[in-house]
Amino acid sequence: MTARYVLRRLGGTLVLLLVLSVAVFALLQAAPGDPARTLLGPRNATPDALAAVRARHHLDQPFAVQYLRWAGDALRLDLGTSIRTGASVSATIGGRLALTGQLVGLGLAIAVLLGVPGGVLAALRRYRATDRAVQTASLIALSTPAFAGGLVLIYVFSLMLGWFPAYGPGTGGDRLPHLVLPAVALALGVTAVLLKLTRAAVIRELDKEHVVFARARGVAERRILVHYVLRGALVPVLTGVGLVVAYLLAGTVMVEQVFALPGLGSLLVDSVTYRDVPLVQAEALLIAVLVCLAGLLTDLAQPLIDPRLRPAADAPRRPKERR
């Protein structure tokens, strides 16, 4: 894998981020309402006071100037202060990133640990009772909105069984029990997606000729499964895992509300409502970076797993395929 490939992918990511930051900035400008008015409250909104607030937050300047001012600061890693609270944006986001990171991480772990083996199982038992049961369960999980699933989980595991706390992030050591229910709620839909993906990929591999041939040669079933089928199914599944990270991040908005967690999702909702430009910008970009990173990692991992996906220059010993 050449460095050029990595650089090209990174360059593409940077361009994407730039476009995204302009788009978010423009969307916030186009949204109805006036942040200065919101800040002052309707009774104080005299023209002088409005002008003072606008000047202070540079809201009176043209779009391009506002954007460049923000971008310049951002490049120097100064994300500014929140218009709404006066707190530093990097501190505000930093505090929440950890929680949302843990939530998404745990959610992803649950989704992978349940979805992938479930998918393999369903594929091996395809069209049989086990497959139907697994598929039905995943259909239910897929069509349950995260907040509804969350409420059911709280009701059952918190109120009826008393196993987990109902809400809040917990402090220090007891963070994990507080995150189990939210992570499960968050992972429900994604688990189903991974399960379907894995099942389809494994079934496809099972039907491949080399698998049939291996079986004909009398290779042990376990070996066929691990070395032939799963290895082949790994790339599409891994791609799926990369993609669902974005879904998990989006899902935190609802899940954090239901479980009263102070994460990025709840912050984003507040900031957008208030048109707190510095915060929204920083958050949108952070989420974009996370999603892009997940995509990048997946893309970089694929050639490692499957030599056929390596760029041509990377495999000089292999002659080019002839058409």
Binding site: T38, L39, A148, L151, Y155, Q257, V258, V269
Partner: peptide, 27 residues
């Protein structure tokens, strides 16, 4: 418990608080 209803109301209520924010006046 009607999940969709509670879910909807919560986000609305949340906005509500925001309202009261900039606008002590607004109910």
């Amino acid at each position: 418990m009607s999940a969709s209803e509670t879910g909807g109301a919560l986000s609305r209520r949340r906005l509500l608080s925001l309202s009261a924010a900039g606008a002590g006046v607004l109910a």
